[in-house]
Design a protein around this nucleic acid. Structure first.
Lengths: 228, 228
DNA sequence: CTTTTGTATTCTGCATGCAGCATTTTCCAT
DNA sequence: ATGGAAAATGCTGCATGCAGAATACAAAAG
């Protein structure tokens, strides 16, 4: 049992006037996590009554959260039959990676012009930490830092729309990447690509950064395709 | 008074089992149109009671539609204060156009490989019709066909994600473009660019198509920037 | 006249109730 | 036993009700 309303209240007496997160946001995030982490598998029907009871909320805010996620593309609305967790085909994933690749290539170019030295240093720090996790074979933290780095580079482009869409695609793909467990040699290759990314960014070489980001995501498809 | 429930019922006795559009979809489309066409200006508060009465629906489905549009980025949710029509700054528009440009460049490349001759001919037909509207100085239909052509080209890329995101950005920008009334010479230039697009597509020249689509959208910024 | 404080109103957020559609179960005929 | 119709159940979709927050208003103090 994981009632959501309890998660909602922040520790009392915390410093500063912490604005209590609206239930809507909490619900959306919670459901999104459940989908990404596989607690709700693709094709699963989102049962309003049952889910609501499980989360400790009534159907109304739950339905609103579901509509929000539908617009995000994580669930599908079937008239008179509720909502189901969207299932992505192999081609869907390939299509998403194609777009993601193009967006990151753009972000790379922009980042080289717009990023400050401090920001680049921060990305380098993330990278170093990721390499440490890699050497420790800590897959979970490695994945997390990996995504953080991509997100960070995109943010350097200082384009809100770009960042939003990138985040959306990243979220949709998160579940897939969770599954795709590449072997040691491909993992090493991915780390090497990251190293090259950072160095291109530090050199502020847009063409090279864009190029390596593109290759990186092209390879990503190879890494996840086996998982369908 | 434009009650939405009446629009909902299709003409009785029509051929085939026409599935009645769910109210949710109807509401979303209606609100979207109201925002795009400027009936609801940026910054306007979406009053649940008032809007609901005006449209002839209760607050519940209306709230769900608003949440959907929020995820789409057309409205902004303010905790405990409802929803307001999102206002886009000049930089926001510029950012959106930057991303749109990149997406269309990608679509152009893919379209050249994947489109059938018949599909290309269809785009050409749209273009010819658009030119007729241009010569007739029918701005409204010209705009509509203009957007249709861009949408059609993106569809040729056969990438659902690409099409979805493109559609989303196109929608957000629709309102802005509605306002941006360029002078005769810029209008002529836009038509010329379109002509070049179609000819590059017919020649299946990815580099040229990508290039002209990019220039076209770079110029689009010039055309709307005055409207802020 | 401006600022502030207390009150009243309005609106949002969430829960619940009810009607209609979908699905499942039951029962009868073959 | 099997196919099918009809009842029964469960669920979604929408409307309404109620509590609490936000805002608007008004009166009083500076």
């Amino acid at each position: 049992m994981d009632e959501i309303n309890t998660l909602d209240r922040p520790a009392a007496g915390g410093p500063g006037p912490i604005r209590r997160t609206a239930l809507h946001d909490t619900l959306v995030n919670h459901l999104r996590d459940m989908i990404i982490e596989g607690n709700l598998e693709p094709g699963t029907r989102l049962h309003e009554g049952q889910l609501g009871e499980q989360l400790g909320v009534s159907r109304t805010p739950l339905r609103e959260a579901i509509k929000y996620l539908a617009s995000e593309g994580l669930v599908e609305l079937v008239p008179s039959r509720g909502a189901v967790v969207k299932r992505f085909s192999g081609k869907d994933v390939q299509d998403m990676l194609t777009v993601l690749r193009n967006l990151e290539e753009l972000a790379g170019k922009l980042a080289c012009q717009l990023a400050s030295d401090a920001e680049i240093a921060h990305v380098r720090a993330l990278h170093d930490e990721m390499v440490r996790r890699y050497k420790a074979a800590d897959r979970l933290q490695y994945y997390k830092l990996n995504q953080d780095i991509h997100t960070a580079i995109v943010r350097l482009a200082q384009n809100a729309t770009l960042a939003d869409i990138h985040q959306m695609l990243q979220t949709r793909l998160k579940r897939i990447r969770f599954i795709g467990h590449e072997g040691p040699e491909k993992w090493a290759a991915a780390v090497a690509e990251h190293e090259e990314m950072i160095s291109a960014l530090e050199a502020r070489d847009p063409a090279r950064l864009s190029d390596v980001l593109g290759r990186h995501l092209a390879n990503a498809w190879e890494r996840v395709r086996s998982a369908l």
